[in-house]
Amino acid sequence: MSGPVASLRGLTKQFRVSGLGRRTLTAVADVDLDVEQGEILGIVGESGSGKTTLGRCLLGLTRPTAGTITVNGAPVTAGDLALRRTVQPVFQDSFGSLDPRWSVRRSVREALDALGIGTPPERDGRVDVLLAEVGLGPEIADRRPGTLSGGQRQRVGIAAALAPQPRLLVADEPVSALDVSVQAQILNLLAGLRRDHGLTIVFITHDLSVVRHLADRVAVMYLGRIIEIGTTAEIFGAPAHPYTKALLSAAPVSDPSRRVVPRLLTGEIPSPIDPPSGCPFHPRCVEAFAPCPIERPVARETSPGHAAACHLVGPGADHPQPAGASPVTA
């Protein structure tokens, strides 16, 4: 396969905020991103990082303020039916995304009906195939979501997403509401769909351990921007951006013999309504120096495919090391 499944160029999404004065919340700011065929791309970030808005733009559920999105090489607009076939969502709360009055069969069939895929009898047969695909027996088809377990509901949500044979799944926190043992089943299911069908998955989550396990590449977002991107091995093994380092160090590890004192970040995530000048991370950054509050760093490669937006990073780093700061890159 050639070319990325989806490309974002200069993607920006702003929201008007009501209240005193006219204010703008910049949820996603000038994001360039290619999603490659067959990969699982993790997008991680904390509250307000813009990861969910980015996913909604990709799904055509939110109209970008600026920038372009192309899927399969063709530009897309919000509400585009062709896009809905190609890019499908999996949400955290499958209880909220499935109609409680509808049977599982009807929920999964909905996408086929809406998009006019196949004849009605064919659609019923297709529902059974889809349920089997996600590990559910045909006896589930006539049940309502309320009678299913959380794991079963998430499987139904995935079956519905697979119905129109999409090329790309955008999964936003798909396992965050699930218990560990059920989470493992859903992660296995998603990995299997990629392995067996070459499905491309954008996996949006706050959970670093899940991304480390499943993703091929990881993009780290902070206040609407991708501040670092690279292969999973590079992001976790040699993080370049101070925020990525702080995020990794803050994540608890399920191994008490590797307890470390985390590099605690001071302060809170600033408001995306009034983001800091220069580098958006500078007020919390232990390595900030003169240019950081003034000039926004551009993304620079540290190695092929691994880039970070930090004044201390990259072969083109044209600013001196601050006194007392530890060197960031090798």
């Binding site: 493992a184 296995n188 480390r212 399920s254």
Partner: peptide
């Protein structure tokens, strides 16, 4: 069953 348990994607027990 934890994602950090060292198993390959798709092979979590």
């Amino acid at each position: 069953a934890l994602p950090g348990s060292g198993h390959a994607p798709g092979e979590l027990p």
